[in-house]
């Protein structure tokens, strides 16, 4: 592989860095101080954007599909199979397969990331909407609610825990897959990792960027749990 073969026995900053950097120590805090601003922080912000946009678009698409799918079974089977198929394609391969169409752009990355969110979001939305008990719907109709009112005021709130559970899984896995995006565009937390791999395995950068990616995923998960509790105070799931 070119990254490893190309790298000589020298580490980054070729003699300019501290003793720890030159000996490739496990975790050089001075490197962290020097490069937080120009390397890690921008990568973290880009990573956050890549993931947030993907989850946002994925959520919108999945929601529209779920609106159709939960009333029409045959449509649902088709969408489910397609989403299942997209999910099975390895991320690195999907990124590369899209390159002939959309080039080395953010669009390529976003299309791939969005496809990965679809399966879990769509499944959870449809399951949540279908899980509303029939007698509750009957009661809503008895109260004179229209179909739109029933959907907005009965079905949607009752499906919310399942929808938010899907959102949690989708967000965490998108943050995780977004590190692979650096194969296509030099953005996100994958980029510093690849640079460090290229520079004779500079440990501090790998551990710092990797740790940030994991921390970001766990923090997003924690925030969504809090949001879930606030939005659905009646359920303790």
């Amino acid at each position: 592989m070119s990254f490893l073969v190309g790298a000589g026995p020298v580490i980054p900053n070729f003699g300019k860095g501290s003793a720890c950097e030159r000996s490739n120590g496990w975790f050089c805090t001075d490197w962290l101080h020097a490069h937080w601003g120009d390397t890690l922080q921008p990568a973290l912000v880009q990573h956050l954007w890549l993931s947030a946009v993907a989850v946002g678009i994925g959520f919108a698409i999945a929601f529209v599909l779920a609106l159709v799918g939960f009333r029409r079974r045959p449509f649902d089977a088709g969408i489910g199979a397609l989403a299942d198929f997209l999910y099975t394609i390895p991320s690195l391969a999907l990124f590369q397969l899209l390159v002939p169409f959309t080039g080395l752009t953010v669009t390529t990355v976003e299309i791939a990331l969005v496809s990965y969110t679809l399966l879990v979001l769509y499944r959870n939305m449809v399951e949540g909407l279908r899980g509303v008990p029939a007698d509750v719907l009957e009661a809503a109709r008895g109260m004179g609610m229209t179909r739109a009112q029933t959907f907005r005021r009965v079905e949607l709130p009752l499906a919310l825990p399942a929808i938010l559970a899907g959102l949690r899984i989708a967000t965490v896995s998108t943050i995780s897959v977004a590190t692979v995006a650096a194969f296509v565009i030099p953005k996100g937390l994958g980029e510093p990792i690849f640079i460090a791999l290229d520079q004779n395995l500079f440990k501090t950068e790998i551990l710092a960027a990797g740790g940030l990616a994991v921390a970001l995923a766990l923090a997003a998960d924690g925030l969504l749990v809090l949001g879930q509790r606030a939005a659905t105070p009646w359920s303790r799931a």
Binding site: I169, V172, S173, I175, S176, V177, A178, T179, V180, A182, G190, I193, A196, L197, L201, K203, I206, L207, A209, G210, A213, V214, A217, L218, D221
Partner: peptide
């Protein structure tokens, strides 16, 4: 935790 661990990060950690 398994979902939060990016594969790239795992491979890179494994390498170090």
């Amino acid at each position: 935790l398994g979902r939060a661990l990016p594969s790239v990060v795992l491979i890179a950690f494994g390498l170090t």
